[in-house]
Design a protein around this nucleic acid. Structure first.
Lengths: 337, 337
DNA sequence: CCCGTTATGCACAATGTGAGTATAAATAGA
DNA sequence: TCTATTTATACTCACATTGTGCATAACGGG
């Protein structure tokens, strides 16, 4: 029964999200000699008592960040997935991805160019650096807050060409409808949660550098310019999964808590929700929703640097934290933005 | 970096769900010499090109069932999880669970006592048998369609006692609120999706035989009677995960399709939804929902064995199959049942 | 032909949602 | 100081969705 049992390496990968200055940021690791960024990650080891413990340990070593709540995202494990460097090509690599939420850590980085996070053990330290970076750097097509139809239409054109380029009639129809559904074309509504479908389509259409690399082909210049910033291995796929999951989750669970500071204005809260959703929201309705669901309460103080009338400072009601029935933020994109 | 790398065995486990006669059934394997049932499963092998391929292969060998759409459920991998027989206790066991939907297969079993599904390879065949069994046999507390407050109140009493039995005041409060939230007590609404939370609580309170077995303790008789039918290893935890996931999913994706026959009456569809949700639904609302979302169309035929006025036979509209924006069935439990 | 039973259609109230308008309270600059 | 500008906050209104009940239709069986 266990004769042909596979030898497996298990990688633990963390997508750590914070929202700063109206941008959803992820904590990535980079080294000057390696082109692509990657998420904090490392192999599962003997001494790790649980998977989460292993993950936390790797994250702490690589970024000096201590994780709070962590949630399993997905397990990637197909043979043909992108091979990580210095690994036997025939060994199976299982990659367990986790999602963690946090406030942007003081330790690591500030507004975007980031500070250093020391590497853990000497052997892998090198000049490794952990920085926060907007997830839209990697998935620019997911940001629909401003209507820069420019890049979107280029992407759409490209995908349309790819779909129509299929010779088999049936497959062509299938491609066209998948593209329309995923990217909200031809009257279809844009569904912000379909991040992974969009990524997979772009990968399939080879608009993404990783798709060329995986096929052992040189990356065309046009692709390098269009497809957003690449990541190592399949980490960008993992990011797309994380974004989709998180966008779904804010609608039915109070996850914004873990991303906001102690006190905030309602507009600040809205900008955070919009940053994650990648879409503009209707202000009055957002406020009504938050208030009638009693997610927040006034602190009594006000924030005066609004540029106009000062805003009341709010805090989350502590009762909400312990997972009430359904205290998420149901949001619907405003057509105008 | 990979010195302390763990040796890992990876198990693939399939929760295969069908709905027959108003009961959600899962396909389980049993052997006369083993007390507990388990899900079709087996170790990941060299020759499996993808994880799903490995899973399909095990399922086919053990049950002769060919799976359609399969979705990843969760990866279980903590050191202290229930140990599967004949495995070194120090080796790490990773368990990848998948969820599959199907119509109850003709090959295997009929109404509940089931037929035989031959084992694959001789070495593990034994007198292995695959049968369909209601998932409420394993998770009886999840069925709230009829108000048999009897067993529910026993469980609630038991959990209440466990919560109040905690000596530390803070922890006691925490337990009480978790129990109330998960089981819909003290004015809290019953949330049918919280299957896993309920299972975990029952496990923690040792109302579940597996909890005793994992702690290497003999199972008290009272527990054996109350806690539903046990399963091998942590398969019942996996089932709770599957049930929760599926209950959530019917609300936003058209998954009922994969469970219904070609044509059906609206009441039949409703009974299927109710079976999964474990709650009664309001008839008129259900019909309106299904109709105004244009999920179904009339076949033109009628079904006369209703006992009253014949019902129109319906079929799913084929357009729905290819994942429309949101064509699930939003259902809300009717207070009365 | 009446009755029980189930299907189906329709009405109505309560609530939720999308979107607009009006007013309040600050700042910057003339 | 007065005014324009900016942002916060309050209120309104139409319309869709949802919870619920009642009326009517179409069968089988006495």
């Amino acid at each position: 029964m266990s004769q042909g049992a596979s030898t497996v390496t298990v990688d633990l990968t963390a997508v750590i999200v914070a929202v700063t200055a109206a941008d959803p940021r992820v904590l990535v690791v980079r080294r000057p000699d390696v082109a692509a960024d990657w998420f904090p990650s490392g192999p599962l080891r003997e001494e790790h008592r649980t998977l989460q413990a292993g993950l936390r340990s790797w994250v702490e070593h690589q970024t000096r960040l201590r994780l709070g709540h962590v949630e399993q995202l997905y397990t990637f494990g197909d043979r043909d997935r992108t091979l990580v460097e210095d690994r036997r090509p025939d060994a199976r690599a299982l990659s367990l991805a986790y999602l963690a939420l946090t406030r942007e850590a003081g330790l690591v980085g500030g507004k975007g160019d980031g500070g250093k996070g020391g590497g853990g053990n000497a052997e892998e330290a090198g000049a490794m650096e952990a920085i926060w970076r907007s997830w839209y750097d990697y998935l620019p097509w997911e940001d629909r807050r401003d209507q820069d139809a420019a890049e979107r239409s280029v992407l759409a054109t490209r995908l349309g060409a790819w779909a129509r380029g299929e010779s088999d009639r049936h497959a062509r129809k299938d491609r066209l409808s998948r593209v329309a559904l995923a990217f909200g074309l031809e009257g279809q509504p844009w569904d912000e949660e379909r991040c992974l479908e969009r990524y997979e389509l772009l990968y399939e259409a080879r608009v993404i550098p990783e798709a060329w690399a995986d096929a052992h082909l040189p990356v065309p210049e046009a692709v390098r310019e269009l497809g957003g910033r690449p990541m190592a291995a399949d980490h960008r796929r993992i990011l797309a999964t994380a974004a989709g999951r998180l966008r779904a989750k804010i609608k039915y669970r109070p996850v914004l808590f873990e991303l906001m500071p102690e006190s905030f204005t309602l507009l600040h809260l809205q900008r955070t929700a919009e940053a994650l959703a990648g879409a503009g929201l209707h202000k009055q309705n957002f406020r009504r929703l938050v208030e009638q669901n009693q997610l927040v309460e006034e602190t009594g103080e006000v924030f005066s640097e609004t540029g106009g009338r000062p805003a009341k400072l709010m805090r989350f009601r502590p009762e909400i934290r312990q997972e009430r029935p359904s205290s998420g933020v149901r949001l619907k994109a405003r057509p105008g933005a």
